[in-house]
Amino acid sequence: MFLAFAVFSWASVFAEDDLPVPAEELVFCTVCHGVQLMGNSIIKAPRLSGMETWYVERQLKNFKNVVRGRHAEDPFGYEMQPMAESLSDEQVAEAAVFANATRSPAPPATVIGDIEKGKAHYSACAACHGVDGTGNEALGSPDLTIPNDWYLVTQLMNFKSGARGSHPSDTYGMQMRASAQLLADDDAIMNVVAYINTLQNK
């Protein structure tokens, strides 16, 4: 299903010296999410480089308020959830600005699926996430070209099963949960993610 080992290729972006440096209280985010929040497939913490400020902020608040990440079938959400608990509102805002400022090369494709079939599925997603997959702030739907593909797979499975998006206060998650039901099975999920891999940035 996945390529055995996802490895990043060297890219000159890491050699730039104006890369943002996290404030001391946010260094620990990079312990899991990697340098420049590039993602770490072993820890299963997704890439957040350049992620929309509003979306990061919303997710951190959801984790903090236990709207996301405490479902019994969401082990990775469970890893992240306590990390947000100790953050003040200012730190949440600061973390979102930092995430948005980070830069790293596009993550490698590790998911294998039928791109053509995925493209057909994606027509149902484009209304909210945009034809190019870069999201729509007005609708609250995030850029799908930023996180790692393996993370998109777990999220779609989680939305489908209700491990994410079933908390009564998770308004946006519930919308996405409904949309995830359009993907009939695991194959459909792999296919649509394989297609997302072909969209811009990737």
């Binding site: 990079t30 993602g39 770490n40």
Partner: peptide
């Protein structure tokens, strides 16, 4: 080694695969 997947480097591919294992 589990952090090396989150630290940019240009170590050879097989070496990195070994670290990731």
């Amino acid at each position: 080694t589990h952090f090396m997947s989150g630290i940019p480097n240009n170590l050879p591919d097989d070496y990195r695969a070994g670290l990731a294992a």
